[in-house]
Design a protein around this nucleic acid. Structure first.
Lengths: 203, 203
DNA sequence: GTCTATAGCGCGATAGAC
DNA sequence: GTCTATCGCGCTATAGAC
């Protein structure tokens, strides 16, 4: 076979292991992943993994922190940008999310299911509550619709963007082949902001 | 402590084990769950688990089939009901889903993440593609909006209903305490159909 | 730093008494 | 049917040569 693994790039050994761990953990989850899988994916020996990262758990923490940053990094900088309108934010968030998720479709289901297993993971990393409530984004929504909790709209936005990827294994066979799935997601880049504006201005 | 486990009801031993397995698998996922956890939750000995179910894997298959039925059972009967309008379906699906998910909040993340690990699980159980495409629900949407793929609306509906539960571990600290979370979900029972109708009739 | 070999143990599964 | 005791594997982690 001689199949070249994704992590076999010209990186330092430590980086190769981290890359491989990210791939294997994201695909299988912590409990189903084996350190042997990661070592093989990285093209190195099992002992080296412990030499660099001490334990499976420590390696996982590092990968997890990185994946959380990737998933929420799309959102965070835009929420507090005072120079864009609410409409602009909806468009930018949607475009960034769908582009990123088409490249990393199993990222949301991984992060969300692992946080379920260990909710503390997050609370350290995300001091979201205060940050979100005081965000420009939430204030802009509240101005528009004082009658509805702004977080409803945030949930809708995230749901419409993330859910098709969270549920991809279920939806894929329904929606057709990979290319058809991709086209539908591309369509959503334009449709989601339109729908969101509708909800904000009517209803 | 003498804490009474949920599965310690007046059921047959086989049922007690199945109940316990459902609880433990749903909470931790297959890979993180231990057969010893399940035995303890059921209040029986580890050997009995194998006596009734032969293996962890077999027990899991049974639980998984049941959980998939529960998650999609909310949807399936309504989609092909020719006697209700599209509006009626939107209201019924939303109310049923939110009521059910308030009682079983970790059901969607469990089913979706386990299907990711083993997509074949589903394809046997759900011959959804044909069934969905020919459903009354999809036809009713197509009548209303011939310009947009009906599955966009289905994804939106499911996303708005399921996503707040899939992402509950992340959203909960943002949205407040358990009671506040519950109130928001109760509000959504009325709001989601309104939003869905907006999307169908405008945009 | 990287390897081979193996320790140590948690896990699923089974044997066998009652 | 239900238990106690234990097997044997596969896993994480480490020792030690190079």
């Amino acid at each position: 076979m001689a199949k070249v693994k994704k992590a076999e790039l010209d990186l330092s050994t430590e980086e190769k292991i981290k890359e491989a761990a990210s791939i294997v953990f994201t695909k299988k989850g912590y409990g189903n992943a084996r350190t042997r899988d990661i070592a093989e994916e990285a093209g190195i020996n099992l002992a080296l993994l412990n030499y660099y990262f001490r334990s499976k758990e420590k390696l996982f923490q590092i990968v997890m922190a990185d994946r959380i940053d990737k998933l929420f990094g799309v959102l965070a900088p835009i929420l507090n940008d005072a120079s864009t309108t609410l409409e602009g934010k909806l468009e930018k968030i949607t475009e960034n999310y769908i582009d990123m998720l088409l490249e990393h479709p199993d990222l949301p289901i991984f992060v969300l299911s692992e946080i379920r297993n260990n909710p503390d993971q997050l609370s350290n990393r995300l001091q979201a509550p205060k940050l979100l409530k005081e965000s420009v984004f939430v204030k802009q929504i509240a101005e528009r619709r004082s009658d509805i909790n702004p977080f409803h709209f945030l949930m809708n936005l995230l749901g419409m963007n993330l859910f098709p990827f969270v549920a991809k294994p279920v939806l894929q066979p329904i929606l057709g082949n990979e290319e058809q799935y991709r086209q539908l997601m591309e369509q959503r880049k334009k449709l989601i902001p339109v729908w969101m504006k509708l909800m904000l201005d009517h209803g």
